[in-house]
Amino acid sequence: MTDTDPLVRFSGVRKTYGTFEAVKHLDLDIGRGEFVAIMGPSGCGKTTTLRMLAGLEEPTAGEITIDGKRMNEVSAHDRDTPLVWQSLALFPFLNVKENVEFGLKMRGVSKPDRHGRAMLWLERLGLKGFETRRIDQLSGGQRQRVALARSLVTEPRMLLLDEPLSALDAHLVIRMQGVLTRLQKELGITFVYVTHSQSEAFAMADRVVIMGHGEIAQIGKPQEIFRAPKNRFVAEFVGRNNILPGKTPGQEIVVAADRMQVSASDPGEGALPAEFLSEEFAGTGIICYFEGPEGVELKAQVTEDQLENLAPEPGQRFWLTWAPGAAHVMAGT
């Protein structure tokens, strides 16, 4: 076993519930110290994948190995794969410190040792002074950190996170993203992070796995996935992409909304005529929606100044253009 071998390997993993195929076929390696985000719409199999890794579900077929060791038959409680739950699943009848100590207690760690390690992690996550608080006396962000401390106190080699930030307010999400990336770098352990939120995945992960219909749709660095979606499913899921017919039949190209230029007069060759529909204020700019040839919906991101200059009216005709380098040709469908 060397450090370059993957920590986790899914090979040909399938999971069915009755006739429903939650995961169809999964081959995936996760490296040591890597921050991997598994992303996809609900029902794509991402949570099932995570639960199989934690031993909460058993694969119907295929094999999961950790450190080269087959894990399929290992029960959840014999694995070292702590999970941060979407609901956090903190024990409401225990106080903060007792929650953090839980995993150590189950592993038979002595009381003084438990206390020391729990206090260390509480301090590390800025929860000093909260040891004896009840869970319902904590804020959302504090609970989040208790859940992290509870999972990390056993010093695992990997941490699983199932949409852990979905219940938080927007401003806390950004803060917790910082906490998580910093922790992951400091500890050097593997994070497997399941989310449906692009911004979370792209902001934190080294590598993003996009899943759809129980299969992997694309694996890559965030930038790669954003700029070069492999197929229509990824392009649509990532959003703010224009999917256009390519030069040869059956081929499709994709142009990101922020690379689309809008002009009020026909600039000539290659420009797409489109009728203005509406605009939407998004945090980073304004997205204008158009109806292009054959009813295709087109998006272009503009600045506020640009919008003022264009002063679009619904139904008004514009022309959309893009730089040759901005278009990405998709491989499959």
Binding site: A54, A76, H77, D78, F102, M106, T154
Partner: peptide
Amino acid sequence: ALEAAAWNLGASQWRA
């Protein structure tokens, strides 16, 4: 998830 969280933290079904 509470019961599953206990298994995940090393508790057998009986212990959980």
